[in-house]
Each structure stands twice: as structure tokens, then as C-alpha cells.
Nucleic acid binder design. Structure first.
Lengths: 338, 338
DNA sequence: TAGGAAAATGTAAGCGGTTACGTTTTCCGC
DNA sequence: GCGGAAAACGTAACCGCTTACATTTTCCTA
């Protein structure tokens, strides 16, 4: 019924071994048979059964991608980069959405194991607690593992991450250049490393520029629009009256802007706002958001590239890459009032 | 080395057939052995090899999802619904991003075939041209196929789609209720059915309400922010001076609002704007966008549900479902000036 | 308690590839 | 033209599971 490798072998009057070799190491079969087999394959519309392949090789041409939230445009952009890169190597992408729940992550890992995936990419920062990462480290001894936007203390776990400290520095320096001296920071609050990196970057930049970090200038908020909204209101009531804020991500920035508008003031006239991530929407809203680009697409792409390399060469040498950010200047910041 | 079904069989002193039966039809094995096997499995941490399963069954516990753009929050929300639903049945999700290119779609289809996926879900409207859909119809004869947000003339192809006509009606009627009589429509332009449905809905509603469709009141634009921006500017220069616009999607609405603001006017005071889709961002921007909810999550969920049902029952009877929209009233519309 | 139906289990043949190993063919230098 | 190495190819076992069919066990009834 279905056309299998035997069909091709029979029609081409060769053994299945030869067809298999043609499929995997074409140079190892004579040009004559090569042409013949190629013809039969095309004629029969033959596509090798990847499952059977995976069974014998004990590794399936698939990469598992574990992410906290597909709906987040940053993550989905990373995913796009991964997917397009993997496609080049004939690998496909199994997505797993954890909602940030470690339990779901473990369940998915089991599923990926049962499917004998060739590698696994974790997208997004890890929890700080070591016990929530132990299984990842353990996993990495058996299958190539790549982390995006975090790193672990293990020589097996590769990573590609944004240089968030540098990115935050960019934002603060940009505001400084516009004359701002009283700068607030709406940072995220859950126990993820990303917010620690960002805080480090903010603090370092403020020090470098000799700016004072006033009481309450760093607000830890839910890293979404709502958090930004609330944080901005609190910031606005502070006695030292900030003239500008940097934020942990674009969503927080958008919430912050919303709060400014709804209090009857205006961005950027009364308050300058800088986002973080350069999500697509940041370019489209009013006022167009000045933000920091993290190159999510390239991040995903690099991660996939490195992982494929690791798989192909069967080397367990891990790799690490940091990607610098870029400032995207748009319309949400203005010169500080003198 | 690895623990397989033989390992379990040996340790439990039964045949592999019994273990297999335990795995697939637990009631068919005696309670005694059932308990025994369960114990050994737990003890050995055994996870069945899905590849081997797929090979014998000639169907892999995976569903291919073909979508034009993961980065679009509507699509990614649909994907989330699909994924969470499939997870319940132990199925996983292979994502394929086509960028709307029919060639890529065909390549992906081949890949999915080689992986013997149990079913395929197409997300997003199809091209209008019949020749771009022929391969989908053909495909549906061999594997369960589900369409999201479009339908085809084939008794094999199931679908779940938003009732876009009804949704557009909701939007127009809402504006009518606020006293608006001169209503514009920023529709999308590429040859996809979705924009036809929306136009139908708009036209029908206008007629129903006895409103005149003035020259140029329907602008066909690129269905993104940029298109909305340009379309709004053109609409603003029209002699009949619309007081409100409905749009093909939230992105277009956001672009339109941006154009209003940048021309020194204000939403909703000078112009009421209604979006379409209720993307997450629509709730977060200023002014918070009044829009039409399409229930993308539920759409994905239903589609997955129906597909699973179809697979389980090996029935080729297709199913069709239309999901009505809901109006989400926020802050981007105001009473029309008398 | 015998006998037979039903339930439980085992045996072994695949599913569609890959690959170790052995055999045949090709090719080259003398 | 011969011998032998290298290249090309074939045979068959195996990857881990499912399942048709055969066999054994259990259970019930007469």
C-alpha cells in the first residue's frame, strides 16, 4: 500500500541497504544506481518514515522547545527564530507551554524523552531556586540542552542570552543624555534571574553616571501592564518627582504610559518612558515607544544553530553566547525640563 | 542499557505482550499482574518509546499545526488553546510557520507526512484561489484535517471559525447606539476570505440600520498598524467626515488611533475607533481599545477537541462549528456629537 | 467433577528503516 | 592477464513496540 524503502529497492532492483545508503550517504553509492534510485524515489513520491529512522537511531529529528508563554511576543519571536533555523536542518519543533509551572515542565520533559528528541531548548529565565533547576542539569547529561536568556552552573548546559546589564545601561545613559537626573525603574518582581540582571544593570549605570538612587526609585511590580500602571502611580507620588522611568519590559512601559495619560499628564512632555524588548507593538502605539532591542529572533536563531552543531558533532562541549542590546529611539522620551 | 518493554516484561515475569496490553488496555490484564507491572514500571522509571509505538500503529501521537505567523497574538492564542487541549490526550504539537507562503506550506506538509502525524490543523484563513487549496482537500482524504477560521468545500475538511459577519455587526450596531451615523471601515486587502466575511458583515449591518455607505467609506489597507495609519489619514480627508471607524483587526485600529493622535486630534473625543480580535495589547494601551472578542483560545481548544474526537473514532465525518463574537466595551468610543 | 466458554497470557511476525558483516565487483599496477 | 585492495552492494539482525493467533488458565454450569 504505502510506498516504503522496500518498494523503492524492488523497483530499482537494488537492496534496501543501498537505498538507505543513498538516503544517508549518497556518495557511497555508484553514480549509476544513484541516478536510478533518485528517479524511482521521485516517481513514487517516496518520503522516508521518520519514525522508523528515529527508532533505529534512537534519536528523532525533533527539538523540544519549552517556554513559559507562547502568547508573549518576545517568546514567540524567539520561537520563530528557532523554528526557521531548525527547518534548515530538517528538524522540527515540538512546543511545550509551561505557564511557568515547574510541574508542567517536568511532565513535558518526560513526554519529550518518550519521543527521543534530539535536543531541548528552554526559553526564558529560570527560577532562582537551585532545586528547580536540578532536573535540567541532570537532563543535560543525556541530551543536548540549550538555555535561552539564562545560564546554569553546569558545563553541559549551553546558553544564549541577552546582555541585559548592558541593555539597561543603554537606557539609563540615553535618559541621562537628555538631561534627566531623577530616573525611576519599574522592575519585575517574581524570583527570576532576569530581574536581577536588570537591577544590576540599572544600579551600575546610575553609579557610573553619578546619579543618586532615591528612596523608592526602584519599584518591583508584576511584570505586566497592570504592574507598570500601579508602579507608575506610586512613582508619581514620590517626593523626589522623577522625570523619567526605565522599565523591565515594554508591557510595563505601556502600563506606565497609560497611568500618565489617565492622570491627565502626557508622555513624553511630563514623563519620559523607556521600554525593554522592542516588541512589535511598541512601534505602533501612541506615543511610539523608545525601547531597548533584545534581538529575540536572532537569539532563537543562534540558539538553534549552536544546538544543531552540538548534535551533529555529538560533542558535549557546551557553548555560551551573550547578545548585546541596541537602543531604539522613538517618541516616548523628551529633553528634561531645565 | 535503556529500559524497554522487555526489561519490564522480564522483571515482572510476564511477556511483552502483556506489558503492552497493560499499557494500552489495562482492564484486559488481571488485577494481580496489573499491580505487579505497575510496580516494576514505576521502579524502573519506564517511559514507552513513542517512536516505536508510532511505527507499529503507523500514526504518531502528534498533531501538526500550520500557521501563517506565530508572532501574531491572535494565532499564538489559538495555538495555546490547541496545545493545552491536545496535551490532555497525550498528543503533542508540531508547529509550522508558513509566513503565508503556499510553497512553505507544501514543504511542511511533506515533513508532517514523513512523521506520520495523527492529524493536521490549519490556522488562519485560506487564500481565495482554489488551486491553493486543492492539496488540502486531497490531504484530508488520508489524514484528519481541521481548519481554523475558514472553510473549504469538502466533506472531509472540518472547521471551526469565528462568526465574523456577526462580529462586525456587533461593532457597527454599538457605534450606531452611540449615535454615530457616518461610519468608516478599515478592512484588510490581501486575497483572504476573512476580509470578505468582514465586509459582508459590515455591509449587512449598515443596510440593516439604514445607514448610507458613502464613497470611500471602506478602505482596503494592509492589515497591520501601518495600513491602519494610512487608511485613517485618507478617511480623515474625505468630505463626508466620518465620526467613527470599525477595523479589520486591533493592529489596524491601533494604527488608526495613532494617526488621529498625530494629527493633533484625540480618540475618542474626535473619532471613535473599534478594533477586532481583542488581542491582549488592546486592553493595555491608551485609550483602552473597544473591540470585538473572537475567543481565540476557545477556538483553538474546540478545534483540537473535535480533531481528537475524529481521530479516536476513526470517523471521517467532518464537523463544522461557528463561534459567535462578543463586544468588549472599553474607552476608545464616545457618544457622537449631536 | 467433568467439560466447555471466557478470560488471561504467550509466541512470534511484523512496522520501516539502519548497519555490521560478508560477498561481489571494479580497478589498478605489474 | 593476474592478484589483491578498494569500492559497491547484499544479507539479515535489530530498534521497541503492537497484535493476530495459539495456548493456558479461570470460572461456571450441569
Amino acid at each position: 500500500m504505502a510506498v516504503t524503502i522496500q518498494t523503492i529497492a524492488r523497483l530499482a532492483r537494488v537492496s534496501t541497504a543501498t537505498v538507505s545508503r543513498y538516503l544517508n550517504y549518497p556518495e557511497s553509492v555508484s553514480p549509476k544506481k544513484r541516478a536510478l534510485i533518485a528517479e524511482v524515489i521521485k516517481e513514487q513520491n517516496y518520503v522516508p518514515n521518520e519514525l522508523a529512522r528515529g527508532l533505529t537511531r534512537n534519536s528523532f529529528s525533533t527539538i523540544g522547545v519549552i517556554m513559559p508563554d507562547i502568547n508573549n511576543t518576545f517568546f514567540s519571536a524567539v520561537l520563530l527564530g528557532i523554528e526557521l533555523e531548525l527547518e534548515k536542518s530538517g528538524l522540527s519543533t515540538l512546543v511545550c507551554n509551561t505557564h511557568g509551572q515547574i510541574e508542567r515542565e517536568k511532565r513535558y520533559l518526560e513526554m519529550l524523552a518518550s519521543r527521543r528528541v534530539a535536543g531541548i531548548i528552554f526559553v526564558g529565565t529560570r527560577p532562582l531556586a537551585a532545586e528547580d533547576n536540578a532536573h535540567v542539569v541532570e537532563l543535560a547529561r543525556r541530551v543536548p540542552v540549550m538555555l535561552i536568556n539564562d545560564r546554569l552552573d553546569s558545563e553541559y548546559v549551553s546558553f544564549v542570552m541577552t546582555n541585559e546589564e548592558q541593555g539597561m545601561g543603554l537606557a539609563v545613559e540615553y535618559l541621562y543624555g537628555l538631561g534627566h537626573r531623577r530616573i525611576g525603574f519599574l522592575n519585575g518582581n517574581p524570583p527570576f534571574t532576569t530581574y536581577r540582571y536588570k537591577l544590576d544593570g540599572f544600579t551600575a549605570a546610575m553609579q557610573r553616571l553619578g546619579l543618586e538612587m532615591c528612596e523608592g526609585c526602584v519599584q518591583s511590580v508584576e511584570p505586566y501592564e497592570k504592574g507598570g500602571y500601579g508602579g507608575m502611580r506610586r512613582l508619581g507620588q514620590l517626593p523626589w518627582r522623577p522625570t523619567a522611568v526605565v522599565t523591565a519590559n515594554d508591557q510595563v512601559a505601556i502600563g506606565a504610559m497609560c497611568a500618565v495619560f489617565e492622570s491627565g499628564r502626557t508622555v513624553p512632555r511630563d514623563m519620559s518612558v523607556v521600554g525593554f524588548s522592542n516588541t512589535p507593538i511598541s512601534a505602533e502605539i501612541y506615543p511610539r515607544l523608545t525601547t531597548v532591542d533584545q534581538f529575540p529572533y536572532d537569539t532563537g536563531k543562534s540558539a538553534a544553530q549552536q544546538l544543531v552543531e552540538q548534535i551533529d558533532q555529538r560533542n558535549t562541549r557546551h557553548s555560551g553566547l551573550r547578545i548585546d542590546c541596541r537602543m531604539i529611539v522613538r517618541a516616548s522620551c523628551a529633553q528634561a525640563a531645565p
